[in-house]
């Protein structure tokens, strides 16, 4: 009997369209949150994903709802790429009852378990073991699902990185560890905080493949993710992918970013922008037309505008919600 194994596929027109739309949605969403936050309307902390769109989108392009992802404090992009509802996300950031977490979590804890989004996370390094657990379920229940752990360069020095990857490796679990190396853990450069030159170099210690990808190139991320996800779905265990990227905004809103230089910002934000790069690619490959791209860009502005209106018009939670969901049944 021939066992049918999933195989590599080339980027289709439909997929390219989805990817461009998701990248634009993330950028538009984050630029809008940045704008609203600066007016002092939003409660709490927000950490924006703008600049890193190619990573979440290039990876999630291969996932469906049965697959899980774990995220970070910089989680909006992962949520959008994994199919979370933008209205529910924006309402959550506003602390409204219609938010994806009913206003209980906020920006740093947006989750939608039904979509396989296991939560943004306030704890650096929190995601490694959580992704491993989701992959253990997939393996034991033979669902064919994979788990993706998105993490930042700051987390690669956390103890959970070692424990999580080692566990996934010895049990050959279907996990893809995706490092988003944006160069800075808060205000601390990667090169200062990490003893390795590349995060992917650490894969050798766990006897798993490690791959370095241009995290500004969504096609490169897409292809690397496809290889890793195929390995995972075929029972060959975890892969570590390091995406070299950059965050356009600060660690959180309000960060003066004294650690960045004007030149690097110019290069990363203007010259090497991931969305502009992909736009050029789909046009040159004749995957999408200028008119189609315009249409997506127009639609995305509308979608995000609607999300803000939805959030602003939504009610706040009620007093009785305070003690709901501490346990399945509180009494």
């Amino acid at each position: 009997m021939t066992v049918m194994k999933p195989e590599m596929k080339s980027l289709t027109r439909e997929k390219a369209k989805w990817m461009y739309e998701k990248m634009c949605e993330i950028r538009q969403f984050e630029d809008k949150v940045h704008e609203i936050f600066s007016k002092g309307v939003l409660p709490g902390f927000v950490h924006l994903y703008a600049g890193e769109e190619a990573v979440a989108v290039g990876v999630c392009a291969h996932l469906d709802e049965k697959d899980s992802i774990t995220s970070t404090h910089r989680g909006h992009g992962h949520c959008i790429a994994k199919g979370c509802d933008l209205n529910g996300m924006m309402a959550e950031i506003y602390g409204k009852a219609t938010g994806l977490c009913k206003g209980k979590g906020g920006s740093m804890h947006i989750a939608d378990v039904e979509k396989g989004m296991l939560g943004a996370n306030g704890i650096v390094g929190g995601g490694f073991p959580l992704a491993v657990g989701a992959a253990l379920t997939a393996k034991l229940k033979k669902t064919g699902a994979v788990a993706v752990c998105f993490f930042g360069d700051g987390a690669n020095n956390h103890g959970t990185f070692h424990e999580g990857i080692n566990l996934a490796a010895i049990w050959k679990l279907p996990v893809i560890f995706v490092a988003e190396n944006n160069g800075y853990a808060e205000a601390t450069p990667f090169a200062y905080a990490s003893s390795c030159k590349n995060i992917a170099d650490r894969a050798i210690a766990y006897n798993i493949p490690g791959e370095i990808v241009d995290g500004k190139d969504v096609v490169a991320v897409y292809e690397a993710a496809e290889r890793a996800i195929l390995r995972a779905r075929n029972g060959e265990g975890p892969t570590l992918i390091e995406c070299k990227t950059y965050r356009n905004y600060g660690h959180f809103e309000g960060d003066a970013q004294k650690y960045k230089t004007a030149e690097e910002k110019e290069k990363h934000i203007k010259e090497w922008d991931a969305i502009a790069k992909f736009r050029r690619y789909v046009l040159s490959q004749q995957l999408l037309t200028e008119q189609e791209l315009h249409e997506i860009e127009r639609k995305v502005i509308e979608t995000v505008k609607n999300a803000v209106e939805f959030a602003e018009q939504s009610p706040f939670p009620q007093a009785e919600d305070l003690l709901k969901d501490v346990y399945v049944s509180y009494q």
């Binding site: 409660p43 709490g44 602390g95 409204k96 009852a97 938010g99 977490c101 206003g103 209980k104 979590g105 906020g106 804890h109 706040f316 939670p317 007093a319 919600d321 305070l322 003690l323 501490v326």
Partner: peptide, 16 residues
């Protein structure tokens, strides 16, 4: 505080 985690939403946190 009640026996619950700290809620995000300002209205709930004020009650907390």
């Amino acid at each position: 505080a009640p026996h619950s985690p700290v809620p995000f939403s300002p209205v709930l946190e004020d009650l907390y």
